[in-house]
Deep mutational scan, measured.
Amino acid sequence: ETQAGIKEEIRRQEFLLNSLHRDLQGGIKDLSKEERLWEVQRILTALKRKLR
């Protein structure tokens, strides 16, 4: 995994995270989306740690 590859994956995950946040802010309670949001946040945290 290169730095560029990790950064690209971070961009993808952040896009997905923002999309999930928008969907959930629409007021629709969706447990699967909430679980996915937490999963994406965990992935992002792990990726950012790899960059250090």
Rank of each mutant, 00 (worst) to 15 (best):
L24Y: 06
A4F: 07
K33E: 02
E35T: 08
I43L: 13
G27A: 07
R42C: 09
E1N: 10
K33R: 09
T2N: 08
L51M: 04
R22W: 04
L51C: 03
E14N: 02
K48T: 03
I6C: 08
R42T: 04
I6R: 00
G5P: 03
L17A: 05
L17C: 09
R42P: 00
K7F: 07
S19P: 00
S19C: 14
Q3H: 11
V40G: 01
Q41V: 14
G27Q: 06
R42N: 06
D30K: 02
E39V: 06
R36D: 05
L24Q: 03
K33Q: 07
K33N: 04
E14Q: 10
R22T: 07
E39N: 04
K50V: 06
L37R: 02
S19F: 07
G26Q: 09
E1M: 11
I10T: 01
R42K: 10
K7E: 08
S19G: 05
I43F: 09
L17F: 08
I28V: 14
D30L: 02
D23T: 06
Q13V: 15
R12H: 04
E34Q: 14
E1Y: 08
I28T: 09
G5S: 12
T2E: 11
L24H: 03
Q25R: 09
L17E: 05
I28Q: 09
T45I: 13
S19Y: 06
S32H: 12
L51Q: 01
T2Y: 10
I10F: 01
E35M: 13
R36L: 13
E9H: 12
I43W: 03
L16P: 01
I10S: 01
R11A: 09
E1W: 11
I6G: 00
R52F: 10
S32K: 13
Q41L: 15
E9G: 02
E14C: 15
K7R: 14
L47Y: 00
R12K: 11
V40D: 00
I28Y: 06
R22K: 12
E1C: 15
I6F: 02
N18K: 13
L51N: 01
K29W: 15
I28C: 10
H21C: 15
T45S: 11
Q25V: 14
L17H: 02
F15M: 15
I6S: 01
I10R: 02
H21T: 14
F15A: 15
T2V: 09
L51D: 01
E1K: 07
R12A: 05
Q13S: 02
K48G: 02
E8A: 14
L24F: 04
L31M: 07
R36C: 05
L17P: 01
G26V: 07
L20T: 01
E39K: 06
E9R: 06
L31P: 14
L24K: 02
L44F: 01
Q25T: 10
E1I: 10
T2K: 07
R52D: 11
L16G: 00
L16A: 02
Q25G: 05
W38C: 14
E14M: 12
E35L: 11
Q3K: 10
R12Q: 07
V40P: 00
L47K: 00
R36S: 07
L37M: 13
I28D: 11
R52C: 13
E8L: 09
V40Y: 03
R42G: 04
Q3F: 10
L37P: 00
R49I: 12
L24R: 02
T2W: 14
I6N: 01
K50Q: 13
R22M: 10
W38S: 09
E9A: 11
K48C: 08
V40T: 05
A46Y: 08
G27R: 02
W38L: 14
F15K: 14
L20D: 00
L31H: 12
L24I: 07
E8D: 09
R12Y: 08
E39P: 00
I43D: 02
F15T: 13
R36K: 11
E14Y: 14
T2F: 11
T45H: 11
Q3E: 11
I43N: 07
L47Q: 00
K29G: 08
A46M: 12
K29L: 09
V40F: 04
E35H: 11
K50H: 03
S32Y: 11
Q13L: 15
Q25M: 13
D23R: 03
E34R: 13
I43P: 00
I28P: 11
G27W: 05
A46T: 05
T2A: 12
S19Q: 14
H21R: 15
N18T: 08
D23V: 06
L24N: 04
Q41W: 15
S32E: 14
E8K: 09
L16T: 02
Q41F: 12
H21A: 12
E14S: 04
V40S: 02
R22A: 12
I28W: 04
T45Y: 08
E39Y: 03
K50D: 02
E14I: 13
A46D: 12
K33L: 15
L20E: 00
E8W: 05
R12V: 05
K29A: 10
S32C: 12
L51I: 03
E9K: 05
K48R: 14
G27S: 07
D23E: 14
G5F: 14
S32M: 12
D30Q: 03
G5K: 14
E39M: 06
L37V: 07
K7P: 02
T45Q: 13
L37N: 01
G5H: 12
Q3P: 07
K33A: 07
E1A: 11
T2D: 09
I10W: 01
R11H: 03
E34V: 14
A4E: 13
L20H: 01
I43S: 05
L24S: 03
I10H: 00
I28A: 08
A46W: 09
L47D: 00
I28S: 09
Q25K: 12
L16R: 02
I28H: 08
D30C: 03
R11E: 06
R42E: 06
I6H: 01
L16K: 03
E39G: 03
R22I: 07
N18C: 15
L31C: 11
S19D: 07
S19K: 11
K29R: 12
Q3I: 15
I6Q: 01
L44C: 02
F15C: 15
S19R: 11
E1L: 10
R52P: 03
E14G: 02
T2I: 09
K48D: 01
G27L: 07
R22F: 07
L47A: 00
G5Q: 15
Q25S: 08
L37I: 14
E34C: 15
F15N: 14
R52N: 10
D30M: 03
K7D: 03
E8H: 04
L47W: 01
G5V: 10
L47P: 00
R12M: 06
N18G: 05
R36A: 13
L24C: 04
I43V: 08
K7W: 15
L17Y: 11
L20K: 00
D30Y: 02
L44T: 00
L16F: 04
G26T: 11
K50P: 00
R36Y: 06
E1F: 10
T45A: 14
E8T: 03
L16S: 01
E8P: 01
E35W: 09
N18F: 10
L31R: 13
L31W: 07
K33M: 11
E8V: 03
R22H: 09
N18V: 12
Q13K: 05
L44S: 00
Q41Y: 14
T45K: 11
L47C: 01
R42I: 05
T45L: 11
G26D: 11
L51K: 01
L20Q: 00
N18P: 00
E9W: 06
F15I: 15
